[in-house]
Simulated scan of single mutants.
Amino acid sequence: MAPAGTPASSAILPPAAARVRAVRPAAGEASAARTVAPSPLDPGATRNPHPLHRVLREEFPLTYDPLLRAWVLSRYADVAAALTDARFTHGHRPGDPPCAQTHVEVDEGELRRVAARTAYVLARRIADRPQADLVADFCRWLPAGTVAAAIGVPYRDMMRLVRGRAASALAGQCTGQISVREKALASFLANVLADRERAAALQGAPAGRIARAWTESLRRDPPVQIAVRRTGAEVRVSGGTIPAGESVALLIGAAGRDPERFRAPDRYDPQRDDPGQLTYGSGTCPAVLLAGLEAEYAVRALLDVMPRLRLADGFVPERTGLITRAPRTLLVRPGG
């Protein structure tokens, strides 16, 4: 997936016609080191991409993937820079400065009330069941419900629009990205409910504590694993220099578990003191605000209405997906 004979960091990578998969290990690496970079789309990555991401970060910080038709970056420093560097173009991430410039002011208090009301309605619907699937019965409804209530559209119409992929036209490019918030919420609830003490610590917790737990989930289990950008100019990165006009795949999932940036990166630590997530930018954006409020009131409503809520006996959440990633099911016992 990378050019034969990866050039020194000061060299410009060869044109597309010269790209092949072989990559020489750097000087000093063990002779047993890989000579072919794995692809983020390799079989098996759907269920567990993390060993593959580790190899890319450590041995192939810059490689070309013919399946993605893009150069691949996997280290936190490179991915974080590419998401904000003006030399990378053709991308959109809620909360980025260009995104924030297009939004009107929103009433945060009203959005908070909408998110809370929607979350409690959904929680009460499943409270009396012996078993429920939080993905199907909660996560797929809350983001659409908050958007519908916030913009004054009947809920049934919003769900029809979501299924017809017209939500963005109605709610805007950012708030219309409902499926991303669904996946982020599913992973967040899976992380919270995986440990009873962790869930108990968030029951009735201040908003700031829940926000930290939410940010940590976005870091460890981002809903979008791969984002694609394009270089508008030559860019120096770990492992080489990418010429202008090239597609670049940013492995957000790999960057979020980079041990050069995070201590014990594979561990979910809601009190982490070295936080950092790449799913959203740092600017003001209704989608970022909504996602955080949905996460907060999902936890509040579920644990308030169902204080004994826990994962179903023997159930272990399993995240799947290559480009986007989240649990497909999240089976719980509402009554404990």
Rank of each mutant, 00 (worst) to 15 (best):
A167K: 00
S168I: 05
A169S: 11
L170A: 15
G176W: 00
G176P: 02
G176C: 00
I178Y: 01
V180I: 15
V180Q: 13
V180H: 06
R181N: 12
E182W: 11
E182P: 03
E182L: 02
K183D: 13
A184K: 06
S187T: 15
F188E: 06
F188W: 03
F188S: 04
L189E: 06
L189D: 09
A190S: 13
A190M: 10
N191A: 14
V192P: 05
L193H: 05
A194R: 11
A194L: 07
D195I: 04
D195N: 13
R196I: 03
R196K: 09
R196N: 05
E197R: 12
R198E: 04
A199Q: 02
A199K: 01
A200S: 10
Q203K: 12
Q203C: 13
G204V: 07
G204Y: 09
A205T: 03
P206R: 07
P206E: 10
P206M: 10
A207Y: 11
A207V: 12
G208A: 14
R209M: 12
R209W: 08
I210N: 01
A211C: 08
R212Y: 07
R212K: 15
R212M: 13
W214H: 13
W214F: 15
W214V: 12
W214D: 13
T215L: 14
E216V: 11
S217W: 05
S217M: 01
S217E: 03
S217Y: 05
D221H: 14
P222Q: 12
P223S: 14
P223Q: 13
V224A: 14
Q225V: 15
Q225K: 14
A227L: 15
V228E: 11
V228R: 15
R229K: 09
R230F: 07
G232F: 04
G232L: 05
G232K: 03
G232A: 15
E234Q: 12
E234F: 00
V235Q: 02
V237H: 02
V237A: 00
V237F: 04
V237D: 01
G239N: 08
G240L: 10
T241G: 00
I242H: 05
P243M: 04
A244H: 08
A244D: 14
G245I: 11
G245W: 01
E246R: 11
S247A: 12
A249H: 01
A249G: 05
L250R: 07
L251C: 04
I252Q: 11
G253S: 02
G253F: 07
A254D: 00
A254H: 03
A254P: 07
A255K: 01
R257W: 06
R257M: 08
